[in-house]
Each structure stands twice: as structure tokens, then as C-alpha cells.
């Protein structure tokens, strides 16, 4: 399922003294099966963009295409449930949305809302809890007896059990320890590869974006600053740095080496191995001279 935003503008609290322009002139295409990262500072509008992806917000100008639906500014939309079933969102700190008595009930909540039968929902809950790396025994527990990390996983399982065609992640690892962070990111990457699940990652970690995404969109002050593959984006690291955005450690390391040795490698490396090979070759050449 493809999602695309065409010339989208959104104003919060339109027509009140609190009116604030959040995004304008945003054009983004997310094709099915892709892994897109949306990066930007706090307040760059990335969370606003995210909420357009399943019609939680309707643009104040422009159009959003979600599958075969069209959400146009200034039009009343009915029956958005279908969209929400296909596009699952894992919000920031998703554990705040837990409310049921047991983990199982909470995971089943989404699927049941979309008209899935109870047996099927339970089956999905069982599957989802394993996918997020928790054991089945946890299903009977109250979500409020779990640790923070476990609650996060349960909430994610609740979205996975909806079996969406596209999953949108809003900083899914905020506040987790480094290990939990890696586990969660790897989990989503595995799902993306195994099920061809379209994934949109909203983050401010350049590392994650460079490592997982095949398409990066950089937001800056409510507009799209740049978009392209990681190689394209990081081929011009100075531009990112000029806008106060970070580059992955590997890239920064390469830049410093280039500066120290007064040289320029023929491309920007995004993986450590790549950079090591490049550096080794360079040093060898230098030694030979």
C-alpha cells in the first residue's frame, strides 16, 4: 500500500489565537515494502507528518493519498477505520496507552475493534507477544505489573496484532537502555524484511536512519529539507551539519580523517567495515609512496 503526501500544510488550532503553522509544502512518497526514515529536530514537524499517515490529522491544505483513499483538505471524511487498520502507529511512549486488566486483553483490543473474531485475536496476541520477544506467560499478567521495557513491548505487540500493511514508528526506542534499543530496532527490521512490511521510522537518531532505512526524509522547520537514499543524503555531510543536524558517527569519523590527512575519499561510507577497508587501502597507498 502506497502513501503519499502532496503539498501538505497543517496548522494547529487553526482560527484561534494559538494558531501555529506546523508543516507546509510537504511532499513525501512512501511505497509499499519500503523502509523510510523521517529525521529532524524537535519541532521540525516530523510528528505532525506522522499523524497524517493514517488520517489522525487532516491537512489544512493539500492532499494525502493512503492506498486507494484520498484525504483532501477541507473535506469531511467518514469511515477512517479502514485506513487505521492498514496503517498501524506506534506512538512515542506507547506504554501510556495500556489500560486493560491483562496483557492479552490489551493486545486483542486493536484487532477486536477492527472486527476480528475473538479466537483469531487471541491467536494473534499469542503470536505478537512472541514477536516482541516476551514469553506467553506474560499474557495473563496485568500490564501495570510489568517493567517499563516490557510495557513498551506489550504496547508494540498491540499494534502488530492489528496486522497492518504499513507500520509507523514514532521514536520507538526513546527512554530504553542501549540493549533494549537495539533489540526493538532489530525486531522492526526483521518484520520489515520477512513480511515486506512498509515501515516509517520517525527518529532523531541519524545512526538508526543510516543503518535501517532505504529512504531518508529530512525535515527542517516544517518543510522537507532533503530526501533520498542514505548514500545520497550523507554524500553531502557539510550541508546537514550546517543545518545543525547530526551525521552518523562513521561519517563524522571519516570527515575527521579526511581533514587530518588532507585528503578526500571517493565516497562516504555508512558502515564501519566499509570505512575500515577504505582507510586500510588509503594507508597502504600512502605507505607505498
Amino acid at each position: 500500500m502506497d502513501i503519499s503526501l502532496k503539498n501538505v500544510e497543517y496548522r494547529y488550532s487553526a482560527d484561534t489565537p494559538f494558531e501555529r503553522l506546523a508543516i507546509q509544502d510537504v511532499n513525501i512518497d512512501i511505497s509499499s515494502g519500503s523502509y523510510t526514515a523521517i529525521i529532524g529536530h524537535t519541532g521540525s514537524g516530523k510528528s505532525t507528518v506522522l499523524q497524517h499517515l493514517n488520517a489522525l490529522l487532516k491537512p489544512t491544505k493539500g492532499t494525502v493519498f493512503i492506498g486507494n483513499r484520498e484525504i483532501k483538505a477541507g473535506r469531511k471524511e467518514k469511515n477512517l477505520k479502514g485506513i487505521r487498520e492498514k496503517v498501524g502507529i506506534v506512538f512515542q511512549f506507547p506504554e501510556h496507552q495500556l489500560f486493560e486488566e491483562t496483557v492479552e486483553k490489551d493486545i486483542c483490543f486493536g484487532p477486536l475493534n477492527f472486527g476480528v473474531s475473538e479466537t483469531e485475536a487471541k491467536k494473534r496476541a499469542n503470536e505478537a507477544i512472541k514477536q516482541v520477544g516476551l514469553s506467553e506467560e506474560i499474557l495473563e499478567k496485568s500490564p501495570f505489573d510489568l517493567s517499563g521495557g516490557q510495557m513498551r513491548r506489550v504496547a508494540i505487540a498491540g499494534v502488530l496484532a492489528m496486522e497492518p500493511e504499513c507500520i509507523v514508528l514514532d521514536e520507538p526506542t526513546a527512554g530504553l537502555d542501549p540493549r533494549g534499543r537495539k533489540e526493538i530496532m532489530d525486531l522492526f527490521y526483521k518484520l520489515h524484511q520477512e513480511r515486506d512490511l512498509a515501515t516509517v521510522l520517525v527518529t532523531h537518531s541519524m545512526e538508526d536512519a543510516a543503518r535501517y532505512a532505504d529512504e531518508i526524509v529530512i525535515m527542517h522547520k516544517g518543510t522537507v529539507l532533503q530526501k533520498g537514499t542514505p548514500n545520497e543524503i550523507f554524500s553531502d555531510p557539510e550541508r546537514l551539519l550546517a543545518h545543525g543536524l547530526d551525521v552518523p558517527d562513521v561519517v563524522r569519523f571519516q570527515l575527521r580523517i579526511e581533514k587530518t590527512f588532507q585528503t578526500k575519499f571517493d565516497r562516504i561510507c555508512l558502515k564501519e567495515d566499509e570505512l575500515i577497508n577504505m582507510l586500510a587501502a588509503f594507508l597502504k597507498r600512502r605507505g607505498a609512496q
Partner: peptide
């Protein structure tokens, strides 16, 4: 607002 949105994304309907 935040929680409403999160639950709406899970298929709850608050406005219709």
C-alpha cells in the same frame, strides 16, 4: 488528546 489519538489508531472511534 495524545491518548485519544493512540486509541483512535487502534480502531476506537471518538467522533462518530
Amino acid at each position: 488528546d495524545k491518548i485519544m489519538k493512540a486509541q483512535t489508531a487502534r480502531g476506537v472511534e471518538y467522533t462518530s
